[in-house]
């Protein structure tokens, strides 16, 4: 099992009724359903966090930040300050089951974005590939979550 931090990856958050339209015009692929995610051609990830809220992580986030202009009605930027983690290994789901009550089996999670509690705090969790999960939490909880994940992996 390995634990990697991804705190430093660029992220771009967006919210509002025009958010999907704007992201599409920027050339991003969007999940059809709320609370799902999809990978972009450049390896970035786009997470649909609700009906009208999105998080983009990776190089695409930089491009979006450059293209962004304030003051657009129905389109609001969400400043992000996330701690990011990648758990990798055949026991990842089982280890995560110590801190998260949801069913994390790949067949169940699929491409869903799970916004839930883990170890008592709000997290966002996705299954990425065999044995690999990505997890985000507010960076103010970053040290706590990192220590907790290390504890369950040890």
């Amino acid at each position: 099992m390995t634990l990697t931090t991804t705190h430093e990856l660029p992220r771009f958050g967006l919210k509002g009724k025009l958010a999907a339209e704007w992201l599409a015009t920027q050339g991003l692929q969007l999940p059809q359903q709320p609370n799902h995610w999809c990978a972009q051609d450049d390896g970035s990830r786009l997470l649909r966090l609700g009906r009208g809220e999105y998080l983009v992580e990776g190089d695409a986030a930089r491009r979006l930040a450059s293209a962004w202009q304030d003051g657009q009605v129905g389109l609001y930027r969400v400043p992000r300050y996330d701690a990011g983690f990648v758990l990798n290994g055949p026991d990842a789901a089982e280890r995560l089951s110590e801190i998260c009550a949801l069913d994390l089996r790949p067949a169940v999670v699929g491409e869903q974005v799970l916004m839930t509690l883990a170890a008592g705090i709000s997290v966002t969790l996705v299954y990425e590939a065999e044995g690999r999960y990505r997890l985000w939490c507010d960076a103010t909880y970053g040290a706590y979550m990192q220590a907790t994940l290390k504890q369950i992996l040890d």
């Binding site: 110590e98 801190i99 170890a119 008592g120 705090i121 507010d138 103010t140 909880y141 970053g142 040290a143 706590y144 907790t148 504890q151 369950i152």
Partner: peptide
Amino acid sequence: GRTFHPERRTPMH
């Protein structure tokens, strides 16, 4: 079980 005590730190911690 294991005890999880969530702790939050500010950027100036």
